[in-house]
Computed example of a mutant assay.
Amino acid sequence: MFNYFQTKTIETSGAKINLVIGGQGEPLLLLHGYPQTHLMWHKIAHLLAEDFTVIATDLRGYGASSKPPGEPDHSNYAKRVMAQDQVEVMFQLGYETFALVGHDRGARVAHRLTLDYPTKVKKLALLDILPTYELYANSDREFATAYYHWFFLIQPYPFPETLISNNAEYFLRHCLSQWSKVDDAFTQATIAEYLLYFDDWATIHSTCEDYRAAASIDSIHDQLNREQKITCPLLVLWGKQGIIGKKYDILASWTAKAINVQGKGLNCGHFLPEEAPNETYSALRNFLVV
């Protein structure tokens, strides 16, 4: 699905990161969300590659990237560590600075990366998220019902791993269908590709660790940096039919976290690049191309 892209594996100080790279121009790093892989960008990566050198990675613990067992404090899946992976990848590819787009979990990694390495990121786009700390701190019944997985996946090992692995395909399909509002967003071939990597104990465990870190060590890091603002230009996009778009004032939330913010909702659910690829691409290109 990534014609004319090259596949690479880069070893960072803590993980082996799988990626595809293609196109020409300034570097653009794309980070995916749960329960997906870099494949989620397949409808728009070739378009972005007309203006940028596009690098789409699998996060630590996802896809074909390595999946180290979780530490007792979940520190090796902290967003700070996952962000460091990506900075090291870009450095080894020869890029000191780059534009950055993240969706869902990848957007949370991107947010942390931009706080920890503010001189690295020229422009940042975050798709369908609000700051993690604020969502946990202000959780209510509506949010917990829609985002039940935030509370299920953080349960102690091996409870969620055992239940999910009993029927990983059912769980994966449920996540994709529940959070999507466009019927034909995912082809059977796409789902099969996601399942190829998700139906694996190591992946299920490491992705649970991603969420366990979010509710523990990431929360500590986020609290310490609550007053730190994103200094580069920020674009926020969200699905107007999803819980985030319906329930929260997304621009107001990110305006409190960044100096220069713009954004809008798209007529879709959670998976913007697959549900509304044309609108997502246009919004990203208009923002990223000077």
Rank of each mutant, 00 (worst) to 15 (best):
A107G: 14
T53K: 12
L93D: 09
G63A: 13
A107T: 07
P69F: 04
V87Y: 09
G94I: 12
L100V: 12
R112L: 02
D85V: 03
Q84W: 01
D51I: 00
D104V: 02
F91D: 15
V109E: 05
G106V: 03
E71K: 15
E71G: 01
T97C: 04
R108E: 07
G106R: 01
A107W: 02
I55T: 13
V89L: 02
D58A: 07
V89F: 00
E96N: 15
A99Q: 15
G63S: 12
V81M: 05
Y62C: 14
V81G: 00
R105H: 06
G70V: 13
R60Q: 07
M82E: 02
T53I: 11
V101E: 09
F98N: 05
Q86E: 12
A107S: 09
Y77P: 05
A64K: 13
H111M: 03
Q86L: 07
S66Q: 12
P68G: 11
M82V: 10
T97L: 00
V87W: 04
G61S: 10
H103S: 07
F98E: 05
G106T: 04
K67L: 09
Q84T: 13
G63F: 14
H74R: 06
A78D: 11
A83R: 02
P68V: 10
H111S: 03
H74C: 14
A83P: 10
R105K: 09
S66P: 11
Y77H: 11
N76W: 06
E96K: 12
V89K: 01
H74T: 07
S75K: 02
V101Y: 08
R80L: 06
H111R: 06
M82Q: 09
D85A: 03
E71I: 00
T53Q: 15
P68C: 09
P68R: 09
Y62L: 03
D85S: 03
N76A: 08
S75C: 08
Y77L: 04
N76D: 08
Q84D: 12
T53S: 13
E96A: 14
Y95H: 15
A110H: 01
L100Y: 08
S66R: 09
T53W: 06
G61R: 04
P69M: 11
E88D: 04
D85R: 01
A99M: 15
M82L: 15
R80P: 01
F52I: 05
L100M: 07
F52L: 05
Q84F: 00
Y77F: 13
M90G: 01
A99G: 06
Q92E: 15
F52T: 07
I55D: 05
P72V: 05
D85Q: 01
M90S: 05
G61Y: 08
S75E: 00
A56E: 04
Q84Y: 00
R112C: 01
E88Y: 04
G94P: 12
A78Y: 04
A78S: 15
H103N: 09
S65A: 10
V101F: 11
L100Q: 05
F52K: 09
V109H: 05
E88M: 06
L100I: 11
E96I: 01
L93V: 12
P68Y: 10
K67Q: 11
K67A: 11
A99Y: 12
D104S: 04
V54I: 12
G70E: 15
S66A: 10
E88F: 02
T97I: 03
R105A: 08
Q84I: 07
R112D: 01
Y95Q: 11
S66N: 08
D73S: 07
